[in-house]
Design a protein around this nucleic acid. Structure first.
Lengths: 235, 235
DNA sequence: CGTAGGACCTCCCGTCACGGGAGGTTCAAG
DNA sequence: CTTGAACCTCCCGTGACGGGAGGTCCTACG
């Protein structure tokens, strides 16, 4: 008839007393007995349940998921499969983000970091409302990690083109022309490859740049787009 | 003198009105002006700051990190480097967890899933307080992803040995003997390779199994450890 | 047998980045 | 002038606890 106090159980399980209180509060693992004065007495069954909970928590399940996993109405397998899928997605997303930051750090000067980010940010949301809706549904269908991959490629491109601008390479240089081609290709992926939309975006940019620049109060780009436009014309 | 209402800015930026309220509340992005009746008027500078915040948030920085990144006292580069390191760690950890669940799903029957987890969980917190401290500091020094990798290997081993038990393979079979060797090798990594600790753990298991089984109220193992012991004896 | 100090109890606020709603005021189009 | 959308502030909720206040209880020691 061994019973455990909450402190002893905490020590044995490696959890904190506060965590055991919490599990009790939400009814996940409670002490089946109390002393006359109200102290919790955990029975062997309680302890066993706690170990089950702990092992499932270590797999990254939420407390609610643990609860339903142990309710035995749902079996473990589909829950694990869902968790596997969720973790797989998470790994892809975080890794995409990671590589984007890595490519940001590798090659951009400290000063250009923020302005590059800013430009991407403005560029992303400067389309008209209709185009934005369109882009967002496309982004949703591509999945966030694909979007991240695109952004990473974009960063690389911006970096290289900026380098050429800084070096004074003329936009008619074959290398820059090639980069402008890649720029359009990437843009095509964002816009879905529809040349109509692409042209509309291009036109919209050209027509609205002054308006946007004055509206938002600072130059919407630093000549990058013009530079690319000149390279495009040289094709 | 363009000014933006909170709703228009929300639409333009793709954030929610509630989010803009929140940024105002914590003083991250506020409207520099108000109308006579108290409605927020965002100036071009406010808008620009919002775009900077948004772009930094997309890199996974917390609002506090964004704030300090924009305070310009700290430069962006070390913040990005820290974020890169954090994301790298996170990817490793989540991926290790992912592969553990994958190996759990691949080869364990639906029924044995929970009992396998339970056994690992009990086994893990089986040692004395001193040994536990020791194990935890070792786990800390190895890093969580290395611990996860060990657990994944352990799962594989348990799976294979269980298979042999189910097939009726005698423990003296060379294949089982080899698996028992791997078992000890893995155990050595957990215990730090110190044969004293290892022997103590082994002794502790043998001596305490009946006591613990009765204490916790269910058989602490299903013969797996005995089976491995017989294989070990056949070496 | 008394006491001291640890262990235990309940209640409550805080975390992080907002979501969502109540209840009231203001704006803009018809 | 009306009406409905937009805006305002205030507040509760999320998940999984951490940490503290203020009080009670247990137990080992003198």
């Amino acid at each position: 008839m061994t019973r455990w106090s909450i402190g002893d159980l905490a020590k044995a399980s490696g959890l904190t007393v506060r965590t055991l209180y919490h599990y009790d509060e939400i009814g996940l693992v409670s002490a089946s007995e109390r002393t006359a004065s109200g102290h919790r007495r955990y029975t062997p069954d309680d302890v066993r349940r706690l170990y089950q909970v702990r092992s499932l928590r270590q797999l990254g399940l939420s407390l609610e998921e643990v609860r339903s996993a142990l309710s035995r109405s749902d079996s473990l397998r589909p829950i694990f499969e869902a968790q596997l899928a969720a973790l797989t997605t998470q790994v892809q997303q975080v890794d995409a983000l990671r590589s984007r930051i890595a490519s940001l750090l590798d090659g951009h000067t400290t000063e250009s970091l923020l302005s590059t980010l800013e430009m991407m940010s403005v560029y992303e949301s400067y389309f008209t409302a209709d185009q934005l809706n369109d882009l967002r549904s496309r982004a949703a269908s591509m999945g966030p990690e694909a979007v991240e991959a695109l952004k990473a490629s974009w960063l690389e491109l911006v970096k290289e083109i900026r380098q050429h601008m800084a070096d004074g390479t003329p936009p008619t240089d074959p290398r820059v022309v090639e980069l402008s081609r890649q720029w359009d290709e990437l843009g095509a992926k964002f816009t879905g490859g529809d040349p109509g939309i692409q042209a509309a975006a291009q036109r919209s940019w050209n027509e609205n740049k002054p308006a946007i620049s004055s509206q938002i109060g600072w130059p919407a780009d630093d000549g990058l787009v013009d530079y690319i436009g000149q390279a495009r014309a040289a094709r």
